[in-house]
Simulated assay, not measured.
Amino acid sequence: MNTDPLNMARLSGPLHAVLRITTALTFVSHGSLKLLGFPASQMPAPPLASLMGVAGLMEIVGGLLVLVGLFTRPIAFLLAGEMAAAYWMAHAPQGPFPVLNMGESAYLFCFVFLWLSAAGAGPWSLDAARGEGKAAA
């Protein structure tokens, strides 16, 4: 019995890369908002030696590395940890439900990065060009 009549499996590699790229672009924007005030933040930039400063730096540098798919597994693992810490430190104390405690982004970033740390960068990545980007999709 054909369980994939539309042959959607052929899209798993490209969609793996699209998920990595779009997640990384969104993640970088969180860091640039914290550290650079872009796009349009009213908050002053935190000192780099502060928790928010380190988080913003991780989001920009780590996000750019994931974007191009370089060292994706270890970087994604670190970013998943950052997002888990952000969720438990900033959002979970406000209540148990991500939709109510404003933690949806941290929650989703954590699990997408955790998956990328296991699955790797997939195609369309520098890891794949280096021979390390085998997709586990």
Results as ranks from 00 to 15, higher is better:
Val61Gln: 04
Ala24Arg: 07
Leu114Asp: 06
Ala85Thr: 10
Ser50His: 08
Glu104Leu: 08
Ala17Trp: 02
Leu6Gly: 01
Thr22Asn: 00
Ala106Cys: 07
Leu48Lys: 01
Leu67Asp: 08
Trp115Asp: 02
Ala119Cys: 13
Thr3Val: 14
Val112Glu: 02
Ala84Val: 15
Glu59Thr: 04
Asn7Ala: 14
Ala76Asn: 10
Val99Glu: 13
Arg10Ser: 14
Trp124Leu: 15
Val54Tyr: 10
Ala129Phe: 06
Gly13Gln: 08
Gly13Tyr: 01
Glu132Pro: 01
Ala40Ile: 11
Ala84Cys: 13
Ser41Glu: 05
Ala84Asp: 02
Phe27Thr: 13
Met43His: 14
Leu114Ile: 06
Leu65Arg: 04
Thr22Lys: 00
His16Trp: 09
Pro5Lys: 12
Gln42Ser: 15
Ala90Cys: 00
Thr23Cys: 09
Pro39Thr: 12
Leu64Ser: 12
Gly103Ala: 05
Pro47Leu: 14
Met102Lys: 14
Arg130Ile: 04
Trp115Ala: 15
Arg20Phe: 04
Leu33Pro: 00
Leu78His: 06
Gly131Ile: 03
Phe111Asp: 08
Gly103Glu: 04
Phe97Glu: 15
Ile60Lys: 04
Ala80Tyr: 06
Phe71Gln: 08
Leu116Thr: 09
Ala85Arg: 07
Leu79Ala: 07
Ala135Met: 10
Pro14Tyr: 03
Gly53Asn: 05
Tyr107Asp: 02
Ser117Met: 06
Phe113Cys: 08
Leu36Arg: 05
Thr3Lys: 08
Ser32Glu: 04
Thr22Pro: 00
Ala90His: 07
Phe97Ala: 11
Ile60Pro: 02
Pro44Tyr: 07
Thr23Arg: 00
Phe97Val: 14
Leu116Asn: 03
Thr23Pro: 03
Gly81Thr: 13
Pro5Arg: 11
Leu35Asp: 13
Pro74Glu: 01
Lys34Gln: 13
Leu33Glu: 13
Ser12Tyr: 09
Leu64Val: 15
Ala119Phe: 02
Gly63Ile: 12
Glu59Gln: 15
Trp88Asp: 01
Gly131Leu: 01
His16Arg: 06
Tyr87Trp: 10
Met83Gln: 12
Val61Glu: 09
His91Gln: 07
Val18Tyr: 00
Asn101Glu: 11
Ile21Ala: 09
Leu67Gln: 13
Glu82Leu: 15
Ala24Gln: 11
Trp88Ile: 12
